[in-house]
Each structure stands twice: as structure tokens, then as C-alpha cells.
């Protein structure tokens, strides 16, 4: 199983906000046994989906090149249970960013047979562990990057970031802009 907790981005405005969708099905392994005859998507995985949606948005601010990691959830509330057949829409918005990190607000809206409801709200902090073009990562004993560029660009393609991603001036985001391998 790949650790992808957003299936597809439907909107992605660099430096501002993004929307991503996650579908939940009964064949999902993580739902088996959670809980017996009342299967639900674990809320911890919803938190992961919220973090991935916001994390890919924050990473872009630093050219997808730097060590941007989840530092903490300052707020996280869940309302109901998400069942197979439902979808979740994550909406992440960048609040304030300084060179040391950024704060994001993320909501998760559940949609299904019973209609639509707000499932979760989070406020997430991301820290930039090493900054600048000549990163001081090595001096801090950190890896130079979190993802192999080829894996990262695949992830961004698979989740549709380059299909819907635009900058704030409306121009399209392209892998080459970030020094990532061009696959298509």
C-alpha cells in the first residue's frame, strides 16, 4: 500500500489554497476490523490526508526542494464517522508563513448518501528544517531532501497537481519549473 491519503487534487493555487478528494471503499484494507460490522475510516488517517494536502501546498512554496515537515497540529476536531461509499474533500489554506515555517487551516467535508457534513477541522504547523538555496541540512545532520525527485513528480502527477495547479497569476505549474523530471 502506498502512503497516499489524497486521491486527487481538484484545485491547487500555489501559495494560497488547495482542494483534494479522498474516496473511501469497503475494499480498503485499513477499514477491516475498524470496527467489525460498522466499518469507518480511522480519523488518524483523515488527519494524515489533511496534512498531505496542506504539506504539498507548503512544500511548493519552497520549490518542492526543501525539508518541510509536519511540526504539530495546534487544533484538530472530528465530528462524525466516515463510512465506505463516502468521499472526503480536504480544503487547505495557507495562513501565515515566515521563513521558519507556515501555518495552515484544513477542513474535511464528507459527502455520501446522507448528504454533506463537515467532518474535521485542523490547524497544522509545518517547519522548514533547513532553509535557502545552499541548504544547511548537512551541517544539521539532516538528509538533503525528503523525496527522490522521480518519486515526488510521480506523486504530483498521480494526484493531479500538474493538471489543476496554477500560480496566483493564473499560469500553469510545470514540473520543469521545480527542476523535477518531465514524465509527459
Amino acid at each position: 500500500m502506498r502512503w497516499f491519503w489524497v486521491d486527487r487534487f481538484t484545485e491547487y493555487v500555489a501559495g494560497s489554497h488547495a482542494r483534494g478528494v479522498k474516496g473511501v471503499t469497503l475494499s480498503d484494507e485499513f477499514i477491516h476490523g475498524h470496527w467489525d460490522i460498522y466499518p469507518v475510516l480511522p480519523n488518524s488517517l483523515i488527519a494524515e490526508g489533511m496534512a498531505q494536502t496542506a504539506g504539498l501546498l507548503v512544500s511548493e512554496m519552497y520549490g518542492f526542494k526543501e525539508l518541510v515537515v509536519l511540526a504539530k497540529f495546534t487544533k484538530l476536531t472530528f465530528n462524525t464517522a466516515v463510512r465506505p461509499s463516502e468521499t472526503l474533500e480536504y480544503h487547505a489554506t495557507i495562513g501565515r508563513a515566515l521563513d521558519a515555517g507556515a501555518q495552515c487551516t484544513v477542513t474535511a467535508t464528507a459527502r455520501g448518501v446522507g448528504g454533506e457534513r463537515e467532518q474535521a477541522v485542523a490547524e497544522i504547523f509545518f517547519a522548514r528544517l533547513a532553509t535557502g538555496a545552499d541548504s544547511d541540512a548537512a551541517a544539521k545532520g539532516l538528509p538533503a531532501r525528503l523525496f527522490d525527485p522521480a518519486d515526488l513528480v510521480r506523486w504530483l502527477h498521480v494526484t493531479g497537481v500538474f493538471q489543476v495547479g496554477v500560480r496566483q497569476d493564473g499560469s500553469r505549474m510545470q514540473p520543469a519549473d521545480y527542476g523535477l523530471p518531465v514524465l509527459v
Binding site: K72, T74, Q103, F125, A127
Partner: peptide, 11 residues
């Protein structure tokens, strides 16, 4: 990292 959070909240 909390200092950054505190700074944003004070702002």
C-alpha cells in the same frame, strides 16, 4: 516551533 505559532497568534 511553538515560538512561531505564538508569534502568528500574537500577530
Amino acid at each position: 516551533i511553538d515560538f512561531l505559532d505564538i508569534v502568528f497568534r500574537l500577530e
